[in-house]
Amino acid sequence: MTLSPGFRGRHRSQAAGLPPGQYLTTDFPVLSAGPTPRISRERWEFTIRTEHQVEHRWSWSQLQQLPVQTPTVDLHCVTKWSKLATSWRGVSLDDLFAGVDTAAEFAMVHSFGGYTTNLPVADLLDGKAWIVHTYEGADLHPEHGGPARLLVPHLYLWKSAKWVRGIELMVQNRPGFWEGVGYHDYGDPWREQRYQGD
């Protein structure tokens, strides 16, 4: 009988309490699809645009006036590393969406530098997602998405867009940067949804 490496890897990682196929890391790997944008807080802004083209806009100082949350969450990257109990400081998407009138089911997240990723609006709400600007007590470094990134820890980390600058609400779903070239549309690490068809 031959056991596939995939089967054995899955068994090991599940024993460690990680999603299938993941291994534990204590550093914080940086994966890049382009040059790192350097965005000052003065230039930074965040926009939610509804399906009716209504724009809600926050400057850096307006973001700071919203209630602060301090999530401690596990991160799971599609490239198979997981990092546990990371501490962040930021604003809940629930607070940003509080005054947004929308019936759209899908969101496209846009970043400075042109990166995009899509996900259901429901996955941004009910305490599941944040705009974070502080990591382990320090300003979020540009390599990790500073001045601010999206944090959606229940999905693979490519959904937690670095250098976030806005959310476009969509009636019809469409794929983002990685979803358009083979990566899974939803990306649930616990169901190992890495690639299309998983």
Partner: peptide, 8 residues
């Protein structure tokens, strides 16, 4: 940029 998550 790459190789992971893909070559760009």
């Amino acid at each position: 940029y790459g190789p992971d998550p893909g070559w760009v």
